[in-house]
Nucleic acid binder design. Structure first.
Length: 555
RNA sequence: GCGCCCGUAGCUCAGUUGGAUAGAGCGUCGGACUUCUAAUCCGCAGGUCGCAGGUUCGAAUCCUGCCGGGCGCGCCA
């Protein structure tokens, strides 16, 4: 990247001039180079001289003068430098450097924006992991979008990524779920029932029961209560899980691993991890329960692993689960949780440390919640109560592309309001269409040019130096940003920055479109512009691909 | 009470880890289609970046304290 070349050049120049500023003048490890918002401040700009002014004990402009003189001599990349304001060094690159990006994109094609990591890692991203006792709600959709997009971006940044879904198919909730379905089954077949006190009230329970009635008829009525509970639990669980997998698949989220909590209990992993904690004095028995000393590792209090009635807690399974994850040899584990689980982070970190691993091997991304409204009125999202809009409803009504883009537009740090009616009404003015439309327009230009016999020249034939219109320059600058955007999204675990980038790229293209014609202008210019347009197609397509959003050829 | 997140234009949100004149979309108002897709473009209006201090060449951004909102503090999952 050009930025790296500039960093090297500045570092070299600084070490040459540092001697003139006294023996204590040291060359900094990190040099901040940015792209100014306003192009009048150069193609790149750096603030090093102001940062160094203190430690070098002099006026920032003195450093700037010495540095820029050295830079202009040293590097053939730059045209000139200017010193501005309190000591910014604005760097102007040689004319023609922007045009080079078109060739680069053309040569790299779909791999433009894919990076080679300095330290490639094996990363596991675990996300959604909803309880299989009901349909996914809208909040899960957000984590599906964020988790999958983050995985795509980490892959683009040069890492090896595995996606995992942890299925909480064990415990009292499953029993209650089975009982609820069993009750609805009997009810549908005309029996008078007493619905379980804490049972799941949602109408989808009746739907599941109805499907069982349709396929099996009345035969299950003969079973004992316990047999019924067990049977309905398994039947309903399978059905919900299948449903959940197909919803996520419709959303283009494909998991590498579906990990069953139940297996941790049946194969003895939970028991083993509890025993091991006791052996190593990371756990103790009090009031008949087994407690883990999580407070030794920063948690605010100790946590129960095994209840006094002998049953393991969810946390115990989670300790075993994370032990299993660690044993699989990942360099980094990333979990995406909703804000309603953030209090759970310290105890899991403590568990990791108790297991003898570095707590930083687990990174938990806490995402704020989704507030669903309908015409401004809050909609309840609880599975236990009646009304709810499911993730599936949302996909049906709004579509996968718009839903993904919407969830990826916002920082995970802020709660989002999603009005279901608004999403439907405004679906045609959703920002996703702004970006997709840019892609469709690009394709249209290329199609029309071909139809009218205007040939796309090869990248060697094209005279890219003809691309000099301000809107062309701006577009090329935007095109050149993709690799650094990928890097930033990956480093900051911030997929939303990709949507922000694509919007500004689309804006640059739409502006180019109105300023510069491609079809029907003089042959050489048309040729250069066709190459630029094709590069734009490639970058939008690559960027949308990292979001998991389609890039349509026409709209 | 303690912990995490948020507070930026009428509304929904960005803001390149501390930079130069704080930006988009929606909404308002006014312009631009005989020519590659008007799902677009151009312009006007709209701001005490919650409040008060602090740190420094420089703060929406970092530190402290308030105010307001969301979420969490189980032998639930």
């Amino acid at each position: 990247m050009i930025r790296d070349q500039l960093t090297a050049a500045i570092t070299a120049a600084l070490s040459e001039i540092s001697g003139d500023f006294g023996p204590d003048a040291e060359v900094p490890q990190e040099i901040h180079i940015e792209r100014p918002k306003d192009r009048q401040f150069g193609d790149y700009t750096t603030n090093v001289s102001m940062v160094l002014a203190r430690s070098w004990k002099c006026n920032p402009r003195e450093i700037a003068v010495a540095l820029s003189a050295k830079l202009e001599m040293a590097d053939d990349l730059l045209d000139r430098t200017e010193i501005a304001g309190p000591g910014f060094i604005n760097i102007y690159l040689q004319s023609g450097f922007q045009q080079k990006i078109v060739r680069k994109i053309t040569e790299q094609g779909s791999s433009y924006g894919r990076l080679v990591a300095d330290e490639p890692k094996r990363i596991q991203v675990e996300f959604v992991s909803a309880n299989p006792v009901g349909p996914l709600h809208v909040g899960h959709g957000r984590w599906a979008a964020v988790g999958d997009c983050l995985a795509r971006i980490l892959e683009a940044a040069g890492h090896q990524v595995e996606r995992e879904f942890y299925v909480n198919d064990f415990g009292a909730q499953m029993g209650l779920f089975g009982e609820s379905v069993a009750a609805r089954y009997r009810e549908l077949l005309g029996e008078t029932i007493v619905f379980p006190e804490q049972g799941y009230q949602g109408s989808y329970i009746i739907d599941i029961a109805q499907e069982i009635v349709d396929s099996d008829g009345r035969i299950h009525l003969k079973l004992s209560d316990d047999e019924q509970k067990e049977l309905f639990k398994e039947r309903a669980y399978r059905q919900v899980l299948d449903h959940l997998k197909s919803s996520l698949s419709d959303f283009d989220v494909d998991y590498d691993v579906w990990f069953s909590e139940r297996e941790l209990h049946t194969n003895g992993s939970v028991q083993r991890v509890v025993d091991s904690m006791l052996e190593r004095n990371h756990a103790y028995i009090k009031d008949g329960a087994t407690w883990m000393r999580t407070s030794d590792f920063g948690d605010e209090k100790d946590r129960v692993l095994v209840r006094s009635d002998g049953t393991p807690t969810y946390f115990a399974a989670d300790v075993a689960y994370h032990a299993d994850k660690l044993s699989r040899g990942f360099d980094l584990l990333i979990n995406i949780w909703g804000a309603d689980h953030h209090g759970y982070v310290p105890r899991v970190k403590a568990a990791i440390e108790s297991l003898g691993s570095d707590p930083s091997s687990l990174e938990v991304i806490i995402g704020q919640l989704v507030n669903l409204t309908r015409n401004g009125v809050p909609v309840r999202m609880s599975k236990r109560t009646g009304e709810m809009v499911t993730f599936e409803d949302l996909l049906d009504e709004v579509g996968a592309d718009a839903t993904r883009f919407f969830f990826l537009m916002r920082s995970t740090d802020s709660a989002v309001d999603f009005d279901i009616e608004l999403a439907k009404e405004r679906s045609s003015s959703n920002p996703v269409y702004y970006v997709q439309y840019a892609h469709a327009r690009v394709c249209s230009i290329i199609r029309t040019a071909a139809e009218r016999g205007q040939k796309m020249p090869s990248i060697d034939e094209a005279d890219l130096s003809l691309l000099v219109d301000p809107s062309e320059i701006t577009l090329m600058q935007e095109l050149s940003k993709l690799p650094e955007i990928v890097q930033r999204c990956a480093d900051e675990r911030a997929p939303h920055k990709m949507t922000t980038y694509l919007r500004s790229l689309a804006e640059a293209f739409h502006s180019f479109y109105t300023n510069c014609r491609v079809v029907g202008v003089e042959k050489e210019i048309a040729g250069a512009r066709l190459r630029l347009v094709d590069a734009t197609r490639q970058v939008i397509s690559n960027g949308l691909g990292m979001l998991g959003v389609t890039a349509p050829d026409q709209m």
